[in-house]
C-alpha cells in the first residue's frame, strides 16, 4: 500500500511533505508529544503549534500515534478499536449493553438534597438547646444565691422565666427537627434499595463492556499475532494465540497494532525505534503507512 502524502507545517512555517517526514536533525521541529497532538487532534490548538494535513485518523489512531519505547499501552482497548475499524462488532453484547445503560439511566434515584439541610437543622437545634439548658442552670444558681443572701430575687427570677420559656420553645424545635431528620433518613434508607439495584446494573454494564472488548480483541488476534511475528528479531515479542498470552514490551504490541490497522494519518516514530528496525525504509515497510520521525 502506498501511503498518501501528508503535509507537516512547522511553527517556523517550513513545510515538509511526503508519506515519510523525517524530522531528525530539524531544529525547528517541535517535540514528539506536540506532533502527536497535531496528528491526532487535527487543526492546531494554538498558533505556535505545528499543523499536520492528513486523512482523518481512525479510532485506533490515538493508541498508536506515538511509537516509542517506554510508553504504556492499553492492548485490549487498542485491539478492540482495531477490530471495530476492521468491521467486527461485539454482537449481542452491545445490544445488551445498550439495554443495561438505558436501565441505569432510568434507575437514577432522586437526590435528597433536603437530607443534608435536615442534618444541619437538627444539629443546630441540639446545640441551641444545650446552650439554653446551661444558661437556665446558671440563672437558677444566681436566684438561689440572691435568695440566700436575703436579697430581692425578682429581677433574676424574671430572667429565669424568660430563659425557661425560650428553652421550651427551642426544645420543641429540636424535637421537630429530629423527627424531620428521622423521616428523611427512613426515606433515604428506602431509596438505597434503588441505588443498590443501579449499582448492580453498573457492574453488569462494566462486565458487558469487558466481554465486548474481549470478543473484539479475539476477532483480530490472528492479524495482530501475524504483525508481531513480522517484527524484526530485535523486538523479541511473541503474541501467543490469544490476547492473554502476549509476551513482549508495550512498544512491540503498539507497533503490531499499528501495522494491522489501516493507517491513514501518520504515526510519530521515535528515532530509536527506527534504528531498532534497522533503518527508515524497513520501519516504513513494516508500518505501511505515513510516518513522521521525531
Amino acid at each position: 500500500m502506498t501511503a498518501r502524502p501528508i503535509r507537516v507545517r512547522l511553527p517556523d512555517a517550513s513545510l515538509h511533505v511526503g508519506p515519510v517526514v523525517d524530522l531528525r536533525g530539524v531544529d525547528a521541529a517541535p517535540d514528539a508529544a506536540t506532533l502527536r497532538r497535531a496528528v491526532v487532534g487535527g487543526l492546531p490548538a494554538e498558533p505556535a503549534a505545528p499543523s499536520v494535513v492528513r486523512p482523518a485518523p481512525t479510532p485506533v489512531h490515538p493508541f498508536v500515534a506515538r511509537l516509542a519505547a517506554g510508553s504504556s499501552f492499553d492492548r485490549r482497548g487498542a485491539l478492540a478499536a482495531l477490530a471495530r475499524v476492521r468491521g467486527h462488532d461485539a454482537g449481542g453484547a452491545l445490544t445488551e449493553l445498550e439495554r443495561v445503560r438505558e436501565a441505569i439511566a432510568e434507575a437514577a434515584p432522586a437526590e435528597s438534597a433536603d437530607l443534608a439541610a435536615a442534618r444541619r437543622r437538627a444539629a443546630e437545634a441540639g446545640a441551641e438547646t444545650d446552650r439554653l439548658r446551661e444558661r437556665v442552670a446558671t440563672i437558677r444558681g444566681r436566684v438561689e444565691a440572691v435568695r440566700e443572701a436575703g436579697g430581692d430575687a425578682d429581677a433574676v427570677e424574671a430572667e429565669l422565666a424568660a430563659a425557661m420559656r425560650r428553652l421550651s420553645e427551642v426544645s420543641t424545635d429540636r424535637v421537630a427537627a429530629r423527627q424531620r431528620l428521622d423521616a428523611l433518613e427512613t426515606e433515604a434508607r428506602r431509596a438505597r434499595d434503588s441505588r443498590e439495584a443501579r449499582m448492580r446494573l453498573e457492574d453488569r454494564a462494566a462486565n458487558l463492556e469487558r466481554d465486548a472488548r474481549r470478543t473484539l480483541a479475539a476477532a483480530v488476534y490472528d492479524a495482530f499475532a501475524a504483525a508481531v511475528a513480522a517484527l524484526p528479531p530485535a523486538f523479541d515479542a511473541d503474541a501467543g494465540t490469544e490476547p492473554g498470552e502476549f509476551a513482549g514490551d508495550p512498544l512491540s504490541a503498539t507497533l503490531a497494532v499499528a501495522r494491522a490497522a489501516p493507517l491513514r494519518a501518520p504515526v510519530v516514530v521515535d528515532p530509536a525505534v527506527v534504528d531498532r528496525f534497522g533503518g527508515l525504509t524497513r520501519s516504513v515497510r513494516y508500518l505501511s503507512g505515513p510516518v513522521v520521525v521525531r
Binding site: R192, R195, E196, R198, M199, E202, D203, A206
Partner: peptide, 8 residues
C-alpha cells in the same frame, strides 16, 4: 457506598 464511582 452505592455506586461504582463511590466504591472506587
Amino acid at each position: 457506598t452505592y455506586s461504582r464511582s463511590a466504591r472506587e
